[in-house]
Design a protein around this nucleic acid. Structure first.
Lengths: 152, 152
DNA sequence: TCAAATTGGTTGCAATTTGCTACTTATTGG
DNA sequence: CCAATAAGTAGCAAATTGCAACCAATTTGA
């Protein structure tokens, strides 16, 4: 894998002109988004990621390197002490909306009614409101009211 | 794989109480979300999914069955003729926000500046605005201003 | 201080998943 | 009726993942 001069990875895209496909080429495997989730939730060390995700250690090694190579994670010196730690880059932090919509979809469709699950809350402890895609005019958008316009 | 009486699949969750992890257990593989993307964009037949995604045929067979088993796709008789077609269920259509945020992240971070890509537009041809997670008070939310509250 | 535990890996091998290339069995369409 | 298309299946090779053991540096605690 190599980086183009633009910072955008230069790999064999599954579907080069589709942003969804490109995003999935970067984080659409079994583990990457869980690593990102845990980084968002404060994980910083190899051991901590391993403990939280349960991922195999050699695969975690690979994923952390991939995420660094793709610019979603970075390694920097830990504030206290000499060891290095993994931190999200701006691009990594920007996956917040993706992880949030996945979470909200999971809450709606992957739990039995009344079944307990963790909740994302803001600084005041209030649950984060559900995201509802809307158009410029404020009307709710969905599959039926939108379509893809091909790149030119 | 079996379905619980609630309609929620009953599998070995990677992390049972995390909605993000559960969502990824359902659609977090290499291909499922691309199949969903194409279904949202009008694909209905096996051949059409195969052509658009480029996925191996045996894997596509498996993914379509998984998505049906998990309640994201359904098969129904095609309006014209005898053949059956694949259509999104409500749960499948509800992945709209997930696919949209993935798309928007991809547009921001997986393309070189100025590089061409497809765009999602509404009925009037206007590009869909970017999603920005906000709290109940309207303040923008991100990784730094939210945290996960464990299930009780 | 010095041994034990922890961190951050690596290595080798087995099991699982994926992809490729046929082959098959309905339907259509002309 | 014949050929093309749709929707898979089957078999096997290649790639990915997981497991368990091993290893070198820190860090910690008695």
């Amino acid at each position: 894998m190599s980086l183009a001069t633009t910072g955008v990875p230069n790999l064999d895209w599954t579907d080069p002109e589709c942003p969804v496909a490109r995003a999935l080429d970067l984080v659409g495997d079994r583990w990457s988004l869980l690593v990102i989730r845990d980084a968002m939730d404060g994980a910083r060390s190899f051991t901590e990621f391993q403990r939280r995700t349960g991922i195999a250690r050699n695969i975690l090694t690979d994923r952390l390197r991939r995420l660094i190579a793709h610019g979603l994670l970075a390694q920097r010196a830990a504030p206290s002490g000499r060891r290095r730690e993994y931190v999200l880059t701006d691009a990594g932090r920007d996956l917040f909306a993706v992880v949030l919509t996945l979470r909200q979809w999971g809450e709606r469709h992957a739990f039995a009614p009344g079944e307990a699950h963790s909740v994302l809350v803001d600084r005041h402890g209030a649950p984060v409101p559900e995201i509802a895609p809307t158009g410029a005019d404020g009307a709710p958008l969905d599959t039926d009211t939108t379509h893809v316009r091909k790149a030119r």
